[in-house]
């Protein structure tokens, strides 16, 4: 029977603990969970009958909940929703084939958890503020003596230059906010990944991997960052299993 895989767990000394834990929780649609092992690594799976699995939002949430429950007790590598293999035997062979990479990734995330930070801006206000700054800078710069007035071409070039300048100012501003965030999270020895300008409003989308006991320090840091940037909204979520910090593709 096909198996839905939820996560890969390292259980050097905790095999009994894992089995006891899995007997106390259920998978998607109430399916029983169990471990398929190779040496000290195990894949947590449930039997999947094609007819019973509907790939909808609630199934994805149930799947994520199983991973979260396990992450509170074990170091694990979360699988992406929809990871299904034909049999326990094939899963065991997959663990064997990818043993070294699995171990390397487990070491990387041991006793750590992930947090997400989204920074939103009021795009109109921010653009207006930057436009004003840009115009102030332009006015302070002496104009070229050979400037040709009333030319369509010059108007077009000036418009493009203004747009370019505005974009540059926006990116510089976002970089300065990222530098501020990095200053705080580096002190917590967190691994971080930043994405800029994912949408016009979401100017920063960051994820951090840090030791579980540094959670309160991170919350405090985000509070301070919010105080420094009153026109932005900082949204911190977590702790999450380390979804964004598993860097390998299972073969």
């Amino acid at each position: 029977m096909e198996k839905m895989i939820y996560a890969i767990v390292s259980v050097t000394r905790d095999t009994e603990k894992l089995n006891a834990f899995l007997s106390g929780i259920k998978g998607i649609a109430g399916a029983d969970l169990y471990a398929v092992c190779f040496n000290e690594i195990s894949a947590v799976v449930s039997d999947k009958e094609r007819a019973t699995l509907i790939a909808d939002k609630s199934s994805a949430i149930e799947y994520a909940e199983v991973i979260e429950l396990m992450a509170a007790h074990f170091t694990l590598l979360p699988m992406r929703f929809g990871s299904v293999m034909e049999s326990s035997d094939l899963i065991s062979k997959m663990l064997e084939r990818n043993y070294i990479e699995i171990q390397n990734n487990i070491q990387k995330v041991e006793n750590k958890c992930e947090f997400g930070l989204k920074v939103f801006c009021d795009a109109e206000k921010l653009h207006e503020e930057l436009r004003r700054k840009s115009e102030e800078t332009a006015n302070a710069t002496p104009r070229a003596s050979l400037e040709i007035r009333n030319s369509v071409y010059v108007d077009y070039v000036n418009k493009k230059l203004k747009e370019h300048k505005l974009e540059e100012l926006l990116l510089n501003y976002v970089d300065s906010v990222i530098a501020g965030i990095s200053g705080y999270v580096d002190r917590l020895q967190a691994v971080n990944k930043f994405k800029k300008m994912t949408t016009a409003l979401n100017i920063i989308d960051a994820v951090f991997l840090l030791e579980k006991d540094k959670k309160d320090a991170l919350i405090h840091a985000v509070g301070e960052l919010q105080n420094q940037h009153a026109s932005l909204s900082f949204i911190l979520t977590g702790p999450w299993p380390p979804y964004n910090f598993v860097d390998f593709i299972v073969k």
Binding site: E2, I5, I8, L53, A55, D56, K57, A60, I61, Y63, A64, I67, L77, P78, M79, R80, F81, G82, S83, V84, M85, E86, L90, M94, N105, G116, K118, I235, T237, W240, P241, Y243, N244, V246, F248, I249, V250, K251
Partner: peptide, 28 residues
């Protein structure tokens, strides 16, 4: 935001199975 973040992770992140070994779930 929590549901969004959760779904984004579980559908778009995590360990990926590739090749012949994966049986995909429809409609993801």
């Amino acid at each position: 935001i929590t549901i969004l973040e959760l779904l984004d992770r579980v559908l778009n992140k995590g360990v990926i199975l590739t090749g012949d070994i994966v049986i995909s779930v429809a409609d993801i």
